[in-house]
Design a protein around this nucleic acid. Sequence first.
DNA 1: AGTTCCGATTGCAGCGCTGCAAAGGACTAT
DNA 2: ATAGTCCTTTGCAGCGCTGCAATCGGAACT
Lengths: 338, 338
Amino acid sequence: MRETTLRDVADLAGVSPRTVSNVVNGYAKVTDSTRAKVEAAIAELGYRPNVLARNLATGRSGQIVVVVPYLDTPYFAELLQAIIPAARKLGYNVLIDQTDGDRQHEGELIGRGSRRHLFDGMIISPLGLAQEDLAARDPSLPLVVLGERVSDGTFDHVGIDDVAASTEAVAHLIAIGRRRIAAIGDQPYPTGEAAQLRTRGFRAAHEAAGLPVDESLIIGTTRFNRIDGATAMAALLDRADPPDAVFCYSDLVASGAIHTALGRGLRVPEDIAVIGYDDIEDGRYSQPTISTISPDKKAIAQLAVDRLVLRIAASEPIPGVELRAAHQLVPRQSTLGY
Amino acid sequence: MRETTLRDVADLAGVSPRTVSNVVNGYAKVTDSTRAKVEAAIAELGYRPNVLARNLATGRSGQIVVVVPYLDTPYFAELLQAIIPAARKLGYNVLIDQTDGDRQHEGELIGRGSRRHLFDGMIISPLGLAQEDLAARDPSLPLVVLGERVSDGTFDHVGIDDVAASTEAVAHLIAIGRRRIAAIGDQPYPTGEAAQLRTRGFRAAHEAAGLPVDESLIIGTTRFNRIDGATAMAALLDRADPPDAVFCYSDLVASGAIHTALGRGLRVPEDIAVIGYDDIEDGRYSQPTISTISPDKKAIAQLAVDRLVLRIAASEPIPGVELRAAHQLVPRQSTLGY
DNA sequence: AGTTCCGATTGCAGCGCTGCAAAGGACTAT
DNA sequence: ATAGTCCTTTGCAGCGCTGCAATCGGAACT
């Protein structure tokens, strides 16, 4: 049995297909009486518009794609959780893509890929993309970038003030009396901008407090996972002069670091204080609970979606902007104790 | 500037649009020479097929939707992480939807919703759906259900053997010498089938060991989150006769339960052993690491996608099947100690 | 009453592709 | 040389909807 179409409804209601379309889309001026007739017909036939046909006719898909490196990283999962309803509210479906932080994969997605027609715009949280990749992207694709990238003026960028947030995190460690502070997560190479901003905050906090930075306490990691934190912490604790506090560039890193410290019989925060970044749910339930920098994820999601939709609707190219969401220092047991 | 179309390519290559289509789709018999001409034209113009138009013409969207209650629940995130590549490999895009476990929301999704045309099939992990909701669904929607539902024969069901897995988990607790074992997560109402199967396993293990079940040690929770585990554990520990082991119906519940126990100065597993369910990544890094039942998520994903694609391709209705993925008991520190 | 005006409704064409079946062309067999 | 065969290529129509501009009919005006 064929799916009922606009034409079927029109025939039953005794009006033209175009009028049915007008009713369905809440368009323009339709008399109450015709509207009633049409709606009755729609109900009787159980008509539902064919989105595929509408997409072709309008040239828009009504979908946006959100690209994250890892879906199972709590920070991204929580962010997506915020983006989906925000987009849905504006009439957009959300496609989700996952790149494993692979530069090539990310590059293809923002390039002239064959899936382009499937979405009207993209929100991407790149990990492997270099600035040049962003420059080489499909210019027809409305784009909002999350995380730490400076826009070249043709796309928007949404994030928190990482330097300020990192500074606050480290200042907090200093405020509770720590003096040998390590940092876990630096990425001193082109695609590691996110990490570098945090390192900059790390330095800034030291400087503000008049403390020297022990460069050997800045540990690089290729990713921001638990295992990276666990490994780095092990290296730190193997030293003759271990730190008394650690600033981790993600809560997962912090979780891994704490795991290692506790496993060695150290007390957190008494022997070594730990602060993370992201405020993922885990951190509120782990043992000890993890002090962290909490980005306003809802705000990030809303800003990104609003801006993307604006960009999609724009007939002219609009200039890229830098949007900052709020963040907050959330001290918990891993720095304050119980 | 207009996007180039099939027709543009055809004109440049000096063939008919239909032939270009044949080349693009790798169809049928196309001479090497024509293929070469067409491919050259495609490359020169940077042509990419318009998926929207193709969708309308074929009546298929090439998308499947995966519906989960919560995106930020690690188990579902990890499952999605497995489903996406499996689907992509078969040429399907994955849409993700999140229902908050809301029965009405879930019901709408499997019903005659207006988004129906956006996907060719659905994989759903229902939480609030009753059997009757499943019966009232849109029969035109190819459907694969994850988790604990018995199929009515018109859709497929993929899961692990929950009763067996739960039995193993509890048997493990018994094997390490525990005798007063609690269960956290029972849901003795129609939509709580998942939980009930685990409770059944809990009982079965007791019976097999010749142990009586203390009904008061079976604690109900409305959800399977950390907070539920934390709260339930608190109640258990407030008793005059607290248990010496707990079987938690998810790793998150276990995590919350452990958090409470440790917070009260108890040792895990010495004072109270804890085992979870799901094998989420957290459990491998928490302190202590969490013993668990590990469902083969990759297998679940593959089975679900394969079956759904089969169902989509089928011209005739095909009977629903029950597919079982493997599971494994993974003992860690929360039962074995350090 | 005739004309103008304006809002409600309609018809047409086309979005870019594919399914179908027929046409065309090359080659073989007689 | 002609008919038959088989494979490649083509043309047509249509998927179901919307943009646009024209049309229609009644109300308002002179």
